[in-house]
C-alpha cells in the first residue's frame, strides 16, 4: 500500500506588471505520492488549486532546460526533483536568482541569451567543407562531450556568485559553450576572437567557487572551461599560435 503524504508548498509570487505589489509567498497544501516530482506537483497546483500560478515546463525529462528554479534553497530542475527527496514536509520554491522575475517562477532570460550569443556559439571554419563529413576521431569527440551535454537551463547562471555582484559578467554557460567549440577539432576560430572574454567580465572574473558545477543538472563543469580558456589565453600571450592571422 502506497501512502500519500501531505506537503506544504510555499511558492514565491510576484508579477512584474504590478511592481507596486511586493513579492510574497503563497501556500498550498497538497497530498503527494512517493516518486512524484516537483514539476508534477506544480502542474497539479495550477490545474486544481490556483490557475494563476506561472512556471515554465516542457519535456518533464530533464532535457529541455525549461524548469530550473530554487527548490528548498538548491537550484535544480523541477522535473527531476522528487518531492520526497528532502525529508521535509515543506517545499519552498523560488525563481532562479540573478534574473529579473517576469511572473512567479518565470524569469527573464534575456541577459543569459545575450551572453550566449556574444561568444559566437557556432562552429567556425576557414577551410571549405569536404564532400563528406569532416573527419574527427573518437577521442576528439569525447573531448567536447561534457560541454555538448549542456541544456542551457541557466542553473549555473542562477548559482554564480560573480553574477550576483556584477551583472556584466558573461556567465558560466557562455564559457562552457565557447570551450565546446575551442576544444572541437573541427573549429578554426582565431585566438584573437577570444578578446571578448579576456577581461574581468570574461574568464578572469570567475572566483572559482565551483557553484556552477554544483548547480548543473547535467554534470557539466563550467569551471573546467574557464580554466581551459584562461590557459589558452596565457599560452597565446606567451607563444602566439592558433590561427592568429585572422
Amino acid at each position: 500500500m502506497i501512502i500519500a503524504n501531505t506537503y506544504t508548498f510555499k511558492i514565491l509570487r510576484y508579477d512584474a506588471k504590478e511592481p507596486e505589489e511586493t513579492p510574497s509567498f503563497s501556500f498550498y497544501q497538497i497530498k503527494v505520492l512517493p516518486g512524484l516530482t516537483v514539476l508534477a506537483v506544480l502542474m497539479r497546483i495550477r490545474d486544481e488549486i490556483d490557475g494563476t500560478l506561472s512556471f515554465r515546463s516542457s519535456c518533464r525529462s530533464a532535457v529541455c532546460g525549461s524548469c530550473a528554479m530554487v527548490i528548498n534553497g538548491k537550484i535544480d530542475l523541477a522535473c527531476r526533483t522528487q518531492v520526497a527527496s528532502f525529508g521535509d514536509e515543506t517545499i519552498i520554491l523560488e525563481p532562479l536568482p540573478n534574473f529579473e522575475i517576469i511572473k512567479d517562477l518565470v524569469v527573464d532570460l534575456t541577459p543569459f541569451w545575450t551572453m550566449y550569443e556574444k561568444i559566437k556559439p557556432w562552429l567556425s571554419r576557414k577551410q571549405p567543407d569536404p564532400e563528406k563529413e569532416i573527419p574527427q576521431s573518437e577521442e576528439e569527440r569525447d573531448r567536447i562531450d561534457q560541454f555538448v551535454n549542456c541544456i542551457l537551463c541557466a542553473s549555473c547562471y542562477g548559482a554564480c556568485p560573480v553574477l550576483a555582484r556584477n551583472p556584466d559578467y558573461m556567465g558560466p554557460h557562455a564559457f562552457a559553450k565557447l570551450e565546446r567549440f575551442m576544444l572541437d577539432s573541427r573549429d578554426e576560430r582565431s585566438m584573437r576572437s577570444l578578446e571578448e572574454i579576456n577581461n574581468e567580465r570574461g574568464v578572469w572574473g570567475c572566483d572559482t567557487l565551483l557553484r556552477c558545477i554544483d548547480a548543473c543538472p547535467k554534470d557539466v563543469r563550467p569551471t573546467d572551461s574557464i580554466v581551459g580558456l584562461r590557459k589558452k589565453l596565457l599560452k597565446y600571450k606567451l607563444f602566439g599560435k592558433r590561427n592568429d592571422e585572422d
Binding site: I134, P135, V148
Partner: peptide, 20 residues
C-alpha cells in the same frame, strides 16, 4: 542532410576511422 549538419558543427559520435 547529415553531412550538412556535421559541417555546421553537429557533434556526431564517431567510428575508429573518424567517420560518423
Amino acid at each position: 542532410i547529415v553531412y550538412e549538419m556535421e559541417h555546421w558543427g553537429c557533434p556526431f559520435s564517431r567510428f575508429p576511422d573518424r567517420s560518423i
